[in-house]
Amino acid sequence: MAAVQTKPRRRPKLAVWKFSSCDGCQLSLLDCEDELLAVAEAVEIAYFLEATRAEIAGPYDVSLVEGSIGTLHDAERIKMIRKQSKVLITIGACATAGGIQALRNFRDVDGFIRAVYARPDFIDTLATSTAIQDHVKVDFELRGCPINKEQLLEVLNAFLNHRRPVVPPMSQCIECKMHGTVCVMVAHGTPCLGPVTQAGCGNLCPGHDRGCYGCFGPKETPNVAALTKQFAALGWTDAAIANALRSFNANAEPFRAEAQHRETPSQRVPS
């Protein structure tokens, strides 16, 4: 009985896919400078156009998917990728929530197209930008705009070693407190989305005296209405609150719902 595996295992095939996005998240993989050689040794990079033109055919052991679904072509292509991938991990706010481009979900897309493009008939787009999980089964979602490279390595590590990734869905506040960061909301009166936002960025903004912008999307069981009530007490208007919730994770349901309430306060159920 071989109790402990001692032979080197076959290198899993890794693919990195892009949809509607800025490429920043997949570049986080290249940004793992100190660990990049170890990554390249641990996996066979089979498809990663930002890094190499070489393309190795599927199926793939792990697919990292960046970007949102914004066109019919995207919607078909992600199904093909899902079929070729044993494990499919989405990376970044575009892939997990539709990204900043999901702002169009709340407005008239045809109006935008007519206003912006000289030849609107060249534009073929869906009316919405949506998360990958709205289209295919996703095995793990890694949040962030952009993702944190340490968390990316942790997720790759976890899947390569058949364990659960340590990416807790807790609040940003826990991360701030563990770092000893002074709360900008309590000590300075700065509205901060940290109490409803998932930790993971390394408390970048509160650590630099700014409120959290919610780049990592809603935490588990967020109470967005209770937080925005406090924002209003700190002097923010409904419009300012709706704007704060409508950024990279605008289409994440808890943020979307509260922004919509704030935009149309008359529909708000009195609490």
Binding site: M170, C173, I174, K177, P195, V196, N223, A226
Partner: peptide, 13 residues
């Protein structure tokens, strides 16, 4: 619970 954010600040401090 309608006011609580479940953010855990109380337990951290």
């Amino acid at each position: 619970a309608s006011r609580c954010l479940s953010c855990a600040n109380c337990t951290m401090v």
